[in-house]
Design a protein around this nucleic acid. Sequence first.
DNA 1: GATAAAGTACTCGGATACGTCGTGTCCGAGTGGACATGG
DNA 2: CCATGTCCACTCGGACACGACGTATCCGAGTACTTTATC
Lengths: 159, 159
Amino acid sequence: MKMSGGVEWALHCAVVLTAAERPVPATRLAEMHDVSGSYLAKQLQALSRAGLIRSVQGHAGGYELARPPAEITALDVVEAIDGAQPAFVCTEIRQRGPLATPPEACSRPCPISRAMSAADQAWRAALAAVTIADLAVDVTGDYGPDVMAGLRGWLSQSA
Amino acid sequence: MKMSGGVEWALHCAVVLTAAERPVPATRLAEMHDVSGSYLAKQLQALSRAGLIRSVQGHAGGYELARPPAEITALDVVEAIDGAQPAFVCTEIRQRGPLATPPEACSRPCPISRAMSAADQAWRAALAAVTIADLAVDVTGDYGPDVMAGLRGWLSQSA
DNA sequence: GATAAAGTACTCGGATACGTCGTGTCCGAGTGGACATGG
DNA sequence: CCATGTCCACTCGGACACGACGTATCCGAGTACTTTATC
């Protein structure tokens, strides 16, 4: 089970956009994190398609958060990049083979599917409990307020 | 994020082995679930390598549970098939680029990594709380005691 | 009839191709600002 | 000095190759049972 590596980039970008007061181009976000600009663009497009960030076209365009940071959860970002469908998919093998369970007895998911779904929902609940604003607060707590201020200044520098 | 499809097979096989009183060959488990025998063998080898099931070689050989079902958790099976490392891997991009965080300030994981790890541990806790014995009980509760009895009889049939 | 040894059929185990999805990249469409020009 | 039209540079958006991992398969090593020949 491997999550897309772009999720990490997307989450960092979301936190960074918290400090921005103007649209930030994908190129600038890429050079800031020292990652591939072309590939990061793909992730940002996914975030835009999910309605988490808004794209501003034109000369001084870029990306900005579409909602207040407190209303964007980590789960939103993860699902936008990595897909919303659960990792475990039940193929109903209980209905196959010589000892197949008759379909009329399969009104509810099989116990294995239930257990996996419960774990998946626990995971989602933990991610939904954390917002981008929370992460920004944690960053300030870890590294001090100067980091966010310096970040804001760097983002405002002319290209 | 996509989990290996073999996890479903492995979990079903583990529950089935609960009812077996003699070693069950991989071929028999495969035809029971109507899946590829060659591929299922791979999964069972992984379970054997993890010490969850024991392989008995020779004429009347096969696989049997290495421990009581109550001492094998769903998490054990998932980790044996899908790997024990978490889905999210932090690549420490905070230490890269022009605004890189100095290494001496990185004693603890970054907030994003912490949030993802917390979610991952919630997922693992939910899986660790379910044992193979619990799943077998749920099966009996869903489909009645006859299913397990019939399963036991079918497994005891001559090849 | 009992014993022992050889043969056999069945099992697991690891090494080997194929397909699919993630990774990484590129170029085209669209838009806002900047500039030169005329009034 | 101000309005206006044109131009241009910069942005996003989707379409295109490459590579790695999961999927599916095969054949070889090892072992317990079966059979048979002998005492």
